[in-house]
Design a protein around this nucleic acid. Structure first.
Lengths: 194, 194
DNA sequence: AAATAACCATAAGATATCTTAAGTTTCGTC
DNA sequence: GACGAAACTTAAGATATCTTATGGTTATTT
């Protein structure tokens, strides 16, 4: 299936696009192949694209003063990979987005995106709903972080993203959970014993 | 100033409303006064309103199996208080929203909100931008939670919300940070000594 | 297939944070 | 202004999590 058709199917979850709107996205989204360890965004660069993932997986992360990386989120098929803050402000990003598996993505430039919003109000609607759903997920993650133990957070992660739990190295999951890989290892060991 | 005018000014931060759109909100938003400790939403109830805060402050929190409350966010003047998940799904909420100071708010019902979206696309746009900004803030908070110590998170909170840090009891801030009030007390004590 | 690098497990000692408890201060209500 | 309730502080012992180190396993590259 063509990538642009997969994007169209994605929008069917919200307000489906008509022919004109489909043509509009078909003419501005560009397909790119990204190899493992390649960056979609690096700290200091302005995030100039909205990226839709067709296949593969990326991680978004920040690096602290001690050069330690912290995974903010994983982005997989049918999800959007963008640093909203940098994208809209057009200022340098504080974040990295890196492929943890080889990927096929569709990208739209900043200007084309604003044009879409202006000419086809449906995109305001669809992206409003998309980000509302992401907001709910993120709020749930915050609740976990302030209320649950590392073991509970790990179990929650595995329950929520069973596919991801297998595809990713443990160290990446540990970074996402906010714990050390060694501690995640002991947690898993304890779970087996139970 | 009339509450509805404050809401109109709020929208001026995004795409300002025209007369027709202003009349539309003026006819559907209802003002309510909420006393301290009164609930805007309780677990088990469906969240039936989108609430805009004119004055005062509320906390959104969840209660865990041990009956311990965890503050997910504070909501102050010019912010929106809603459980998006319950509001759109029309299913019982898992959350509470409670006034920590007496409040004046404007509320719009679920059906009126959907009508607004349908008849005036500008609201899709404006609420898309509003929630995108909230998403960025929340993502930053997640990064803090997975990468920073409790002391760093406290200092960040005070820097980000200096007004809130004074208005709220420490126990409420501790709950927001995901630590015990006793530990926050020692943290503050250590900071003074430094 | 060998060589190298990445990943995972385990454990000991260190640090951050929690729990419990008691005492003090501040706030809200009468 | 007095009283009871809520909020804050302090401290000791308990628990969760981190750091460092080491060895073994699995994946990637040559």
């Amino acid at each position: 299936m063509l990538s642009i058709e997969k994007l169209n199917i994605h929008f069917n979850n919200f307000l489906p696009l008509n022919d004109e709107e489909f043509d509009a996205i078909a003419s501005v989204f560009v397909e790119r192949r990204i190899r493992r360890k390649q960056f979609l965004l690096q700290q200091g660069d302005v995030c100039r694209h909205f990226t839709f993932v067709i296949t593969g997986c990326a991680k978004m992360f920040a690096v602290d003063q001690n050069a330690k990386a912290h995974n903010i989120q994983f982005i997989i098929e049918n999800e959007w990979a963008t640093d909203l803050s940098s994208f809209y402000s057009e200022r340098p990003s504080q974040l990295y987005i890196e492929a943890v598996e080889s990927m096929i993505v569709l990208q739209i430039s900043h200007d084309d995106m604003l044009n879409l919003y202006t000419h086809y109000p449906k995109f305001d609607r669809n992206f409003r709903v998309i980000i509302e759903q992401k907001y709910i997920e993120l709020q749930d993650r915050v609740l976990q972080n302030i209320s649950a133990t590392a073991e509970q957070r790990y179990l929650f992660f595995v329950g929520q993203f069973p596919h991801l739990a297998n595809r990713l190295p443990l160290s990446q999951i540990a970074s996402y959970l906010g714990i050390t890989p060694e501690f995640l290892s002991t947690i898993r060991n304890n779970l087996v014993k139970k």
